[in-house]
Amino acid sequence: MFQEIPSGLCLVLSGIIFSIGAIGAITRRNVIVIFMCIELMLNAVNLAFIASGNAFSSMDGAVFVFFIMTVAAVEAAVGLAIFVMVFRLQGTVNADEVNLLKG
């Protein structure tokens, strides 16, 4: 049988990916790219779940990742519908230019 990958390495990778996603979500201004960075952060969390589930020979990690994927899919559908609507109303998808609530 193959030897397992040390779970610490997977958690380090998860932390690096989460940080990249957080940096992108803070510095970018295009809402769709921000959205993709948030998806990347969700993926990093999924990786942490799978790595810990594997380390503890538990299946709960996979089940939690399944639910996270469900929520991510719903979030993608509703979020992108909102972006399309914002683009129709404001004519832009730049997060700095969107000021619908400003009086």
Partner: peptide, 24 residues
């Protein structure tokens, strides 16, 4: 789910909205 459904949706929306106006 991710590479198939979500990214396809995102690519659709990117092509639907006019990106020139969202240029950073």
């Amino acid at each position: 789910v991710y590479a198939g459904a979500i990214m396809m949706l995102i690519l659709f929306v990117i092509m639907m909205v006019n990106m020139d106006k969202g240029d950073e």
